[in-house]
């Protein structure tokens, strides 16, 4: 058994929050700079060059790249040989969020859903906890803005609708979102499981590095086809029209009931702030 102090989790989470807000990962930078070279629309190129310049300014000035510093979403993988001392994982993560968002001058964007009263410290975070073999802790964060999250969707399709039905749903969701989710976007798709499992998978898919392909050959092929079809929609950077609507399509799947075909689409904007740490 390895003992990890809850305080250590809090510290790591605080740092993850600060880094996510100000430093875009190399995977996303590389995809955006690639898009800047291939985008056909002059206005689209303009937008992409502002986006690239923006994350450079943000990183150099240690400043949030976007004013919507997001809801903090976590996937935490806890080794089964780890004992957390001094509190629960959830409390430790939330304390890290509280400190990170305060210390980094990040915007607190969490409120009561009915009264709309801000909770004041960007908590509670959304935390998905699972156990894995071993004695390590892996914490993954996405600081996810509301604009792109709001454009996400879920459909309980009929099994007979198959892949064509899935594609129609995905493409319709993206076409109708237009410029709202700040394209170029990354599209996370969860197929199967049940209602909430598909949604969680679609979110988890977004944690994969942009540019990576699914380990499942069938899904990898579907990812490539969908990326091409999404970019053929013409939505373009910020919805102004163009050839870059998405810089990635990531798909995860899970077995489901014989009567069901759940499909969830989680949209991620170009400010694709995901970070992780293993310790």
């Amino acid at each position: 058994m390895r003992t990890v102090k809850a305080e250590e989790i809090t510290d790591k989470v605080r740092t993850l929050c600060l880094d996510a807000a100000t430093k875009l990962g190399d995977d996303v930078k590389c995809a955006l700079e690639g898009a800047l070279k291939t985008e056909e629309s002059p206005l689209g190129k303009d937008v992409l060059s502002q986006i690239v310049e923006n994350y450079k300014i943000a990183e150099a000035g240690d400043q949030p790249m976007c004013q919507d510093t997001g809801l903090a979403i976590f996937f935490v993988e806890l080794g089964s040989d780890v004992y957390i001392e001094g509190g629960t994982v959830e409390d430790a993560v939330n304390e890290g969020v509280r400190r990170g968002y305060e210390d980094g001058y990040l915007r607190k964007s969490v409120c009561d859903p009915i009264t709309r009263k801000n909770t004041g410290d960007n908590t509670p975070a959304i935390i998905h906890l699972s156990t894995v073999p071993g004695d390590k802790v892996k914490i993954m964060i996405a600081a996810k803005g509301g604009g792109s999250e709001n454009m996400s969707g879920i459909a309980m399709l009929k099994p007979a609708q198959g892949i064509p039905g899935l594609k129609d749903f995905v493409l319709k969701t993206i076409r109708e979102s237009g410029g709202n989710p700040c394209p170029p976007i990354v599209v996370g798709i969860g197929i199967g499981g049940d209602f909430e499992k598909s949604a969680i998978l679609s979110k988890k898919a977004l944690f994969r590095p942009v540019g990576s392909v699914s380990e499942d050959a069938e899904l990898a092929a579907l990812e490539a086809e969908l990326l091409e079809e999404v970019n053929a929609l013409g939505v373009g950077p910020m919805g102004f029209g163009g050839t870059t609507t998405a810089i990635g399509v990531h798909i995860e799947k899970h077995p489901c009931h014989i009567a069901s075909f759940p499909v969830a689409v989680n949209i991620q904007c170009h400010a694709d702030r995901h970070k992780e740490v293993t310790f």
Binding site: M65, C66, C182
Partner: peptide
């Protein structure tokens, strides 16, 4: 008018 969403550090200048 639209400004570039997410270009928040650039716009702040």
């Amino acid at each position: 008018l639209a400004a570039v969403g997410g270009a928040a550090a650039l716009i702040a200048k």
